[in-house]
């Protein structure tokens, strides 16, 4: 129908931009990683992937990346959800907090990394404060547990969680909570049996976005992490930018592996959420 064609014509430019510039790069990169294209001296096949995954640098990098993303996601979600639940009651407080949180969101991660670096470095503000009260802090920047990296992610993403959860709480959640109270549910039971289940789809979606993002982010660990082991994005860039040509295929291979993990996490989420979302939105269909 005419209506349908107009729709396709309208969406085509944007779709083409994403498919060509994004999908194209992805596909061409995949071909290079298999030695099928580009200037690489990689033989055709999975050689690049074998070279990359062989050895402790990749394994340790993968473990470190998963550690950083899991802990950062978990903490950001915990902090954001707790803050949202504490803030929801008063209208003015809610608005002010949303504004503050919004203000923090567009601060680039690179700046966050610089700021957190100044705060947590060996001679940073936190160390000075601790020293004043007589406590010697362990190293927090470039430390084995990537504390500074995780701190930056949690700092940046918790307000994001706060905003999304506050928005979700603005829906019919409060009404359902009231019904639960009239049915005899104690406050804690309301939280467990009504509030959290109703928020679950939003929380899960945010968690996946944060997980995927932190898994593929470069600047923060590059600035605040240690030289070894390196999380996967840093490893990928270093291989890619290395002098020898074969490094290019290896870097791309690592980058694609990160993408696969991120997408797998998202698919696992859609599997979980289709059930959850189906329950929630089903009411309106």
């Amino acid at each position: 129908m005419n209506h349908r064609r107009t729709g396709l014509l309208l969406i085509l430019p944007a779709l083409a931009t994403v498919v060509l510039l994004f999908g194209g790069g992805l596909g061409y990169g995949f071909a290079q990683s298999l030695g099928l294209a580009g200037f690489t001296d990689t033989p055709v096949g999975l050689a690049a992937y074998q070279r990359v995954t062989d050895g402790p640098a990749f394994t340790n990098g993968l473990l470190l990346s998963l550690w950083i993303s899991t802990v950062a996601t978990g903490l950001a979600v915990a902090v954001g959800v707790a803050a949202a639940l504490a803030l929801r009651r008063t209208a003015p407080g809610r608005r002010a907090a949303t504004f503050l949180a919004q203000l923090g969101l567009p601060v680039p991660h690179l700046i966050g990394a610089v700021a957190i670096g100044l705060l947590l470095a060996d001679s940073g503000l936190l160390a000075r404060a601790a020293r004043t009260v007589g406590v010697a802090l362990p190293a927090l920047v470039a430390d084995p547990h990537a504390v500074a990296v995780i701190a930056e992610y949690v700092w940046k993403e918790a307000p994001f969680v706060l905003i999304v959860v506050l928005a979700a709480l603005g829906g019919p959640v409060a009404e359902h909570e009231r019904v639960a109270a009239t049915l005899g549910a104690r406050p804690r039971q309301v939280l467990r049996h009504v509030t959290l289940p109703l928020l679950a789809p939003s929380i899960l979606a945010v968690a996946v976005l944060i997980f995927a993002f932190t898994l593929g982010a470069y600047e923060v660990p590059a600035l605040l992490g240690r030289a070894y082991p390196q999380p996967l994005p840093v490893l990928a860039y270093q291989r890619f930018a290395a002098a020898e040509l074969s490094g290019r295929a290896e870097g791309i291979a690592i980058a694609l592996l990160i993408a696969v993990i991120a997408v797998a996490a998202a698919l696992a989420y859609t599997g979980a959420s289709r059930r959850a979302v189906g329950r929630v939105t089903g009411a309106r269909r």
Binding site: E175, V179, T182, G184, A185, T281
Partner: peptide, 29 residues
Amino acid sequence: PPHRRDLGVVFQRPLLFPHLTVAENIAFG
């Protein structure tokens, strides 16, 4: 508080818990 008042309320909208089945809704209290 409402949960200690021994009452049941029906509102204009049904407000069934969307994450629960019909039976689980009825069983809630």
